[in-house]
């Protein structure tokens, strides 16, 4: 009788393996994401500036300062305008592109690739191209506008237009993403619904859209809006290389302010407080998305 000693039963071996396999990722997740996220919250309650030997608990002082900070409010307002302009445009154009591309037979692959290419390209390099395209005299945009008899401007240097010019770049970049997500949503609609609709006597494009596509696309729509909004909130690259927040703070956005305060002026604690605002806004979008999807689920 040779009894097996020192080995574990299959159940305990499985539990041990599970823990060991999850451990490296779990540790990294705490070190790189969750831990720092908690640290940001704590840091925002101190008065610490980068490199200082002393650290003092400051309560809500940073938030109080933020409340009175004109630049912060400009930054928040600009961010909200940027999101408010680029999200509807991205979602609407993405939806139209998806429906149009799904409805045409040939060239489908080409259209999809063309509209998606900006998503897969380096935004920073393309931002520099856009800078050239927005050039007041030789820029492509003004040349086209002039040819069409539309007003022209020095888009990126004019405080009234700079934010919208950046939003246009954002729409251009994210449109393809919204499009492929909508295309996936469209594919999930069972074709017999359209057939049933045709049998019921409604087969026009508008009827098809209103009675089947739109209601069936609901969850996808909520998701696309949320993901586009979250991405828009993160606008930074174009601001950093094209306008640096200017002219006269007209393109100052939250992440740019955060980097300025936290890394340029080395005001770590204040930067952390701005980060918290940024985090809360992002979480609010996710929360709104969850609530909306839940309601729809009960409704449907």
């Amino acid at each position: 009788m040779a009894e097996a000693k020192g080995t574990l039963g299959p159940r305990r071996a499985e539990a041990l393996a599970g823990t060991l396999l999850a451990l490296p990722a779990f540790i990294l997740m705490w070190l790189m994401l969750l831990g720092p996220a908690v640290a940001v919250g704590l840091l925002s309650l101190t008065d610490w500036n980068f490199g200082e030997p002393q650290i003092r608990f400051a309560g809500l002082e940073n938030y109080a300062e933020m409340w009175g900070d004109r630049v912060f409010w400009i930054s928040l307002r600009n961010t909200v305008i940027y999101v408010g302009v680029s999200v509807p445009a991205t979602v609407l154009l993405g939806l139209l592109a998806a429906i149009a591309i799904e409805s045409v037979g040939p060239l489908k692959g080409f259209y999809r690739a063309a509209y998606f290419l900006p998503v897969a390209s380096t935004l920073l390099a393309m931002a520099l191209v856009w800078e050239f395209m927005f050039h007041p005299s030789v820029g492509f945009v003004n040349q086209v506008f002039r040819a069409l008899g539309l007003p022209t401007a020095d888009w990126l240097q004019n405080p009234d237009t700079a934010l919208f010019a950046l939003a246009a770049i954002g729409v251009w970049q994210n449109l393809g993403l919204a499009m492929v997500l909508f295309m996936a949503g469209l594919k999930a609609i069972p074709p017999d619904l359209y057939e049933a609709l045709a049998m019921d006597g409604a087969d026009g494009a508008w009827e098809r859209f209103r009675r089947v596509t739109w209601p069936m696309l609901g969850p996808a729509l909520v998701f696309v809006v949320a993901i586009t909004a979250i991405r828009s909130f993160q606008v930074f690259d174009t601001v950093q290389v094209l306008t640096e927040g200017g002219p006269s703070k007209s393109t100052e956005v939250l992440l740019f302010t955060m980097v300025q305060q936290g890394f340029t002026f080395l005001r770590s604690a204040y930067g952390a407080a701005i980060t918290m605002v940024f985090l809360l806004l992002t979480l609010a979008i996710t929360l709104a998305q969850t609530v909306l999807l839940d309601r729809r689920a009960h409704y449907g």
């Binding site: 009788m1 097996a4 299959p10």
Partner: peptide
């Protein structure tokens, strides 16, 4: 056979 295998992996 004459081997107890409860604790052995598959």
């Amino acid at each position: 056979g004459d081997r107890r295998v409860d604790a052995l992996p598959p």
